[in-house]
């Protein structure tokens, strides 16, 4: 971009965005060009279920729980990835949409342990999904190969978020990728090498974006195993990382006066929700005094 690009009074680049008018569930609205249908629906207060979507990652388009009906389109479209166009007419709660979302939820529940996925039970209720209709997931052993976090792939729904966070949406370390194909696809390092021998730098950004609890801080995993994980007793407090001078925003998840998990707000201009190994895991000195 040229030096002469328009800037706002604080000097930030301003992209002059046109407004796009569309109709969602009978309501007509205008949103900025470049918004997604999901953004537009949100501005109307419509609560759309999402799993593979995250504000700080490229839409992976994989889970399909956010599909909506777009008039003129042959199939339903993913609202998280589809950008608005003038004159679109969208239905977010038609029978087609409800049927598809219900079956997607049932398929997920039949193949993945969704028990640690926030809001999943609520969505099943909303769409009348019966989680065991297509069978129950196969148990898989937890992969426990490092001191900081565990990988419970029975809970992995292959949303691609961890791969994106490890890859070019954030960390650029590329320690993990999707391997295998179809029903045999998994998230893996090369030759399933244990993480400490892989390229992993333990930033935990994969843990930070995992929507199903397949990746868990060791403390969370242990508490869950002991049936002592209780989010109703947890508080989340934002503060700043104590290490280098970048000043990363941290959200401390505290249960019973103990830090059990560290994340970063996705809206942070400093971190975009991503941290390094020290910021995410380097808090343990507090408890060692």
């Amino acid at each position: 971009m040229a030096a002469g690009s328009p800037t706002d009074p604080t000097g930030r680049l301003v992209t002059l965005r046109r407004k796009v008018q569309l109709t969602i569930d009978g309501a007509t609205l205008s949103v900025s060009e470049g918004s997604t249908i999901l953004d537009a629906a949100k501005s109307l207060g419509i609560d759309t279920p999402t799993l593979c979507f995250a504000q700080n990652l490229t839409p992976a388009n994989a889970c399909r729980v956010c599909v909506v009906e777009l008039e003129g389109a042959r199939t339903l479209v993913p609202s998280c990835a589809r950008r608005v166009e003038p004159g679109m007419v969208v239905h977010t709660d038609s029978a087609r949409v409800r049927d598809a979302r219900r079956t997607v939820l049932e398929l997920l529940a039949s193949s993945v342990d969704m028990s640690a996925t926030p809001k999943f039970a609520e969505w099943c209720e909303r769409y009348g999904a019966r989680p065991t209709r297509f069978g129950t997931p196969t148990p898989r052993p937890v992969v426990d190969d490092n001191a900081l976090f565990v990988r419970d792939y029975a809970k992995c729904m292959l949303c691609y978020k961890c791969v994106e966070a490890c890859g070019d949406d954030a960390q650029h370390t590329f320690a993990i990728a999707v391997a295998g194909r179809g029903a045999h696809a998994t998230i893996a390092t090369e030759l399933d090498t244990p993480l400490p021998d892989s390229a992993c730098v333990f930033c935990g950004n994969c843990v930070g974006v995992c929507p199903t609890g397949a990746l868990q801080f060791r403390a969370e995993h242990e508490l869950r195993e002991a049936d002592a994980w209780d989010e109703s007793r947890q508080s989340q407090i934002d503060t700043i990382c104590p290490y280098c001078g970048v000043g990363c925003s941290l959200t401390l998840h505290v249960q019973d006066e103990r830090i059990v998990k560290v994340t970063s707000p996705v809206g942070s201009e400093v971190t975009h929700g991503h941290l390094c190994v020290k910021g995410r895991f380097g808090f343990e000195y507090l408890g060692k005094r």
Partner: peptide
């Protein structure tokens, strides 16, 4: 400062941010 104190810190882009007590 991490999690035990209230206050502010300033980072390398001159951004003043809040420290909060959590434990």
């Amino acid at each position: 400062s991490l999690g035990e104190s209230e206050g502010t810190v300033t980072n390398s882009e001159r951004r003043v941010q809040r420290l909060r007590r959590a434990v």
